[in-house]
Design a protein around this nucleic acid. Sequence first.
DNA 1: GGCATTTGACCGAC
DNA 2: GTCGGTCAAATGCC
Length: 238
Amino acid sequence: MEDATATTLATELDGLLAMARELEARVGADQGVPGAARELCAALAASVDRAVRLAGRSGNAGGRASVNGQRRSGRKAAAAKVRTQVRVASMQDLGPLDDGLSWRKYGQKDILGATYPRSYFRCTHRHTQGCAATKQVQRATADPLLFDVVYHGAHTCAQTAVLAGMEQQQPPAAFGQEPQSPPEEVQWPAEPVTPFSFPSCCHLTGSYGYAAAGGGLGVDMELEDQLDELFLDVSGIF
DNA sequence: GGCATTTGACCGAC
DNA sequence: GTCGGTCAAATGCC
């Protein structure tokens, strides 16, 4: 049981590290960002990196998609290769706002132990372009203004190419990896990242365990608190 | 009329 | 049997 928890923790930390590095890269590229903010972002990336090491894992830092041990039926497996979780705070009680992509809601379920129902979205272009991306949005029990958003699968539709073109205004080596696929065949990276930009009214406040609303994964509380604090510090700057 | 949302039913894993 | 995820008909909105 502890092995599974450690693996899950490590996977979540991988996602955190990727996001921290992207944030660091973007802040570094923006000359309008105060120096203190850059230092804090660098500290964030370093701290998350240490957290990954502390998680006592090896090999996964290089990146691999994970489904966190979630069971998958056959028809679900196709969209489960890439999974990214973020927590979004909405300034208004309107739900997490548009992330730049077109989503169509196809279901809603009451989740055991969760105060609020979970909404299921898939790409609007699922049928026209075969885009298999889906996302799940669930309001956090502890804070109704926080939304846990879980992305499954990779966007392969044309609008992703448009977004990718906007993203390419930033240095392409945000993750220290080789350049992305060409626009006509855009795919998100195979490891958990934040493949989009949040609108100004939303703050990326962190990445938590899958069952965040139900108490998380039982990860080390001190570590979780530190990460939480770091993300809150960074989000407070912008 | 076309598209998005809602919601109960269904399916697979456990 | 329970639960999470998806389907698809019904409904609403523009």
